[in-house]
Write a protein that binds this DNA or RNA. Structure first.
Lengths: 381, 381
DNA sequence: TTCGGTGGCTAAACCGATTTAGCCGTGATA
DNA sequence: TATCACGGCTAAATCGGTTTAGCCACCGAA
């Protein structure tokens, strides 16, 4: 009975709330604004949304509406709006793991264009679990996200919504892939090493869950051939290949690099350089080499991939292939927004260019090159 | 006219869609399920939500409902649900910057409990801009988030929703603060240094935008006093104090540490140890010391704060005070969920304990201690 | 005088759920 | 036989917007 309905036209009326004050009082709704003006909610909505239908409404009225909305501190309820318009002004971002530096940097890049256009994003991490991934994509679309951004996430079938895949390599419906030029990346790294006289090069291949792994490896194979470098099976270790944890967290990634660095030494196969799949494993391995009494780069050169922030601050600082992750995120965000706005993407694949950052972890191959590094580490433990 | 309405009771009917298939066809709504069973949407809703009102519905009917929902692949529209129930099953997380390692690790901790309870989260980064922060809090609540998690974000007034502030230090309405025991942290670091014979200790004070800065500094002051260590104004540098960029990105944080490391040397004041506000600046400074020809820890010991992933992989590896950031995130998430479920938090402040991780960057104060480090670096550039 | 057009606005359906009040039939009780 | 309680379910309001069809008044033209 005493429940307030249709507040009188007096703009002061809605409850006792001071505008904006968090205390008490209902939120101001469209109806409140309309009532305060003796107009219908429809009119107010049309005006506030600059709908073309509102063109015939005299600008004087429009200004009254705007003024009242401002005066009452009206803020539209996005949920109600979404329900009717079937748009949520939000997108879903899925990553393998939030705390991963790769994902975090991409995320921060994506954020800019989204926020600029009034979009928010929901994040979910699938931990390289395919089922979890599909479930999250569903849950996200239940929440009416308008599109997806998939970061370093291998996708086997087309998502239901427009998507951009960062490091996506499969041509799929509704998805635009943003990738770096792996061919160039491999070329940069290997020609650098080749120029320094390296021949016996060890490799860390990527984790099998990582989207870039295969493509990059093919690029490396090609580049190696063109430089007359032979890829030796025995010097090629695939990360995540075994015992070492499947779950993909950065802490473990360092450890993993360390462990694989030791394994490399334990193999007893001579090598003068390592090209790792990412900086984290490169740093881990470098550390293993140093601990084993080798010098970097005098005994072994190390090249990473990504250029994570700490790469420059390693001792020795890490030579690496930089991926412009922030930029890739920004690009992805913009492409998705364009798609949502109905502007179809020009290309289904957008390529960004990597860059070699030469630092102190690479140097000329040891004088007696082609032979095993001088001081060998004792095998594990 | 031909617009489909009230699909007949036949469960096969709704369009030509195969269930779950992304192609064509409307989504299955509650009405569809109801119609397929010749029940009302109300009943179906009550059953699916295990509402107490549904207790009187025979379990046979309940099972029919469940079965039909499953068979049709019904997935409730979260937006519609939110509108009516005024709950969104999502929370807003605000951070200074997504790509910051601190935030990323907390985020990944928060994620677990949230996802477990079916909550999603929206992220916004305020870049240490107070106005942006308030705007985001508003925008987020326009989207009906049920609460906030504030990461390392100084808050001056109470938010409108239940909140948990990680590294929050002001007692505010509706907010629970999750903080580490700074007293203990300072004690751990300084007693470690004191035991090693350090007396002239340099400090990097935190950025003024960082929530922990003041509290930690007071703790350091107290701990120093109790160990008879005098804090020398001339050896205390506040990060972000000047020229060096105000915007807070990790790349810059390393640079900043490096720059401040050099400044420290340039002061010409002898010191044998540095206790930095965070690992990133510690690593930057350490790098500056090394570049200047000093040895760590023989000439200068360095203690960081946070224990970021790469701390263990520095050369020398970094002694630091570990903050259990992931755990703090998890705790924060759980507390917020409890609050949303109506279980009021026992405490308005939850303290977690830091831990000293002793590694290779600290060692005994140089023999001729109390004197300036032996080889001095030339002042900048 | 009638008609058509247009400017200014609104009624009402709608989005897809949740939720409350209460209907209807039946068997037990007074 | 009237009443009540209860089991099983539903009608209808509601959340707060968006959007479409169209009303009404007024004006100029036929």
């Amino acid at each position: 009975m005493s429940k307030r309905r249709k507040p009188p036209a007096n703009p002061r009326e809605p409850g006792t709330r001071k505008r904006g004050g968090p205390a008490g009082g209902r939120r101001v709704t469209l109806k409140d604004v309309a009532a305060s003006l003796d107009l219908s909610p429809a009119t107010v909505s049309l005006v506030l949304n600059r709908s073309p239908v509102a063109d015939s409404i005299p600008s004087e009225t429009q200004e009254r509406v705007l003024a009242a909305a401002r005066a009452l501190g009206y803020r539209p309820d996005m949920v109600a709006r979404s329900l009717r318009s079937r748009r949520s002004y939000s997108v879903g971002i899925v990553v393998p793991e939030v705390s991963d530096g790769y994902a975090a940097r991409v995320l921060s890049g994506v954020e800019d264009p989204l926020m600029e256009d009034g979009y928010f994003f929901l994040v979910a991490s699938h931990r390289s679990d395919g089922e979890l991934l599909t479930r999250y994509l569903q849950l996200l679309s239940d929440r009416l996200v308008e599109g997806f951004i998939l970061v370093n996430t291998p996708l086997t079938e087309s998502p239901e919504l427009p998507s951009v895949a960062i490091a996506g390599h499969h041509p799929l419906d509704r998805v635009t892939n943003v990738v770096i030029d792996h061919q160039l990346a491999a070329e940069l790294a290997l020609s650098h090493l080749a120029e320094l006289g390296h021949e016996r090069i060890a490799f860390f291949k990527g984790h099998s869950g990582s989207a870039d792994t295969e493509v990059r490896w093919r690029a490396i194979t090609a580049a190696a051939r063109s430089h007359g470098i032979s890829l030796r099976r025995e010097l090629t270790l695939q990360l995540g290949g075994d015992a070492v944890s499947q779950r993909f967290t950065p802490e473990e990634a360092y450890q993993e690099g360390y462990a694989y660095g030791r394994r490399l030494l334990a193999l007893g196969q001579p090598f003068t350089a390592l090209f790792a799949f990412n900086d984290v494993s490169a740093i881990g391995a470098m550390r293993a080499f140093l601990d084993a009494g080798l010098s970097v780069p005098e005994d072994v050169s190390v090249v990473g991939f990504d250029d994570i922030q700490s790469a420059a601050f390693q001792n020795p600082s890490l030579t690496t292939v930089r991926q412009p992750l922030h930029e890739m995120g920004t690009t992805a965000g913009r492409i998705l927004l364009d798609q949502l706005a109905g502007r179809d993407p020009a290309d289904r694949v957008v390529t960004v260019v990597p860059e070699l950052v030469t630092r102190a972890s690479t140097g000329p191959a040891p004088a007696g090159a082609r032979r095993r590094p001088r001081r060998r580490a004792s095998a594990r433990g």
